[in-house]
Amino acid sequence: MLTKRIIPCLDIKNGRTVKGVNFLNLRDAGDPVELAKKYALEGADELVFLDISATQEERETIYDLVYRVAEQINIPFTVGGGIASSDKVSKILNNGADKVSVNSAAVYNPQIVKEISDKFGAQCMVVAIDARHVDGQWLVHTHGGSKPTELELFSWAEKMEDMGAGEILFTSMDHDGTKEGFACEALAEMSSRLTIPVIASGGAGKMVDFKEVFTDGKADAGLAASIFHFNEIPIPELKSYLKEEGISVRI
């Protein structure tokens, strides 16, 4: 049976993990490769690296990082952040990443999604969408959720599916950082309207949040950052819990 996926997300700046981590047993917790190895060993199903570098110069370091991760990690991983051209996608995939995620660039130029999907296959095209509930409707935001657009979340997700997205990574800005659970209602609505998998992001704080995102939220995968980085919820414990609760997970 196909399992629900648990995906740690690592924020990267200038080739280093930025969110504070407190692993005593890691030689260098700021080294994304060390962290990635730890997560892979613990049973993470995939990894996401989000490059939040501010400058072009810093962004160039991502290729070397992708190469080093791919050398050592034998589970799939996605790279996102600042991807706006198929040349960059080509370089990232050639260095060993399995998928790329595109966010703001898709809003400014939806054709990029079709271009990447046609050239490299839908399986590597993740469209990341940040949205917030504003005056009764979910609106897509760009630039890490800071800039509102007039795009309505669900129709935007449907358009991205039509353009060739292989997966949608939906982050609720309203839930992100609250640790009070995922946006299950919106996720369920999205999942029912799409035929591609949906990755839920934003709001994970407790193990039950993951159970709910897979049952009520109908998500195919759950993504989180800090709860894993600070070891608040160890992945093996989370997966045992989910299994006991009747959710299909890989252990």
């Binding site: 399992t3 199903d45 035929t195 591609i196 998998p197 890989r250």
Partner: peptide, 28 residues
């Protein structure tokens, strides 16, 4: 049905074959 079929899945009807030597049927 979500397509692509994407993620970790188990195998069924695994035959006694050298390709699967040492691999249990419940592996993902």
């Amino acid at each position: 049905l979500k397509v692509p079929h994407m993620g970790w899945n188990t195998l069924t009807n695994v035959q006694d074959h050298p390709l699967f030597k040492g691999i249990e049927s419940e592996e993902y």
